[in-house]
Simulated assay, not measured.
Amino acid sequence: MPKTSILIVDDEEDILELLKFNLEREGFKIFCADSGEKALEAVKNFSPDLVLLDLMLPGIDGLEVARVLKSKPNTSTIPIIMLTAKGDESDVVRGLELGADDYVTKPFSPRVIIARVRAVMRRNAAEPDDGIQAREVHGIGIHPGRREVAVNGKQIKLTMSEFDILHYLAQRPGWVFTRSQIVSAVRGEGFAVTDRSVDVQIVGLRKKLGASGKVIETVRGVGYRLKE
């Protein structure tokens, strides 16, 4: 079975070496790049299974790298975990809007990185079609096994986070979920994320659902629910 390949993009050599050492020890195949330009070239040449992407890069920055990768059909499904400086909330939000799957703030523990990588890869793995039937709510068809969503029969493309949030809300239409409950359900307990990040995912989800997006209701001061 081939090893999962990861591209690490960071302009700090110490961080590259630290991540490379720890991830290779866990059995991953590692490629490294120290600039946005080299990152895009590496993706083109090696087609990694996941990208660990620092946002502060010389030349083409991490946000632009994420935008380019998510805009092209052949790279749009590659999961991206952003590496960000503490307090750069606006960059985190922008990265999530572009389709990044997760983020970790510096300084970080290698164990946290490894856990996040494994979690994202689990969520990104194609699940077998084991008889799980699509759930349909308000004309929105959701197939958990295939991770597919269709609105009135037309398939739409969601990020992993958007799919997980929609699937979570659809399990109990009419039930109000807080932002922290949503985070715990789709990311795991203890995931450090701001309320704003959850809001961004909801905005993106509504936009992609088109007219059906109105079934996701905001309950002021509490959270979100799928219309009953």
Rank of each mutant, 00 (worst) to 15 (best):
V193A: 09
I114Q: 14
S212G: 03
E24D: 10
L50V: 06
A185W: 01
L205C: 09
A211M: 06
G36S: 10
T194F: 00
A119K: 09
Y168R: 10
K38M: 10
N45L: 12
A185H: 03
Q155R: 12
G210P: 14
F163A: 11
A125Y: 02
G27S: 04
G62V: 04
I114P: 11
R111I: 02
I216A: 11
V215L: 01
G59F: 00
P79M: 01
G190N: 13
V112L: 13
R187N: 08
S90H: 05
F21I: 08
R122M: 01
A192F: 00
D129S: 14
T75P: 12
K38C: 05
A66T: 07
K154C: 03
I15L: 13
K227L: 08
I81H: 04
D34F: 01
D14E: 11
L16Y: 08
K29N: 13
L23Y: 12
R147S: 14
K20Q: 14
K70V: 01
I81C: 03
P73N: 04
T178R: 04
E89F: 00
G131N: 14
V222E: 14
T178Y: 00
E26C: 06
I60R: 13
S197N: 06
D101K: 03
R122D: 02
D49R: 14
F28L: 04
E136D: 15
R94Q: 10
Q171M: 06
E189W: 00
P2L: 05
F21R: 15
T105E: 10
I142E: 13
S184C: 04
E189S: 11
Q155V: 10
E148F: 00
G190I: 03
S161D: 05
V149F: 02
D129T: 10
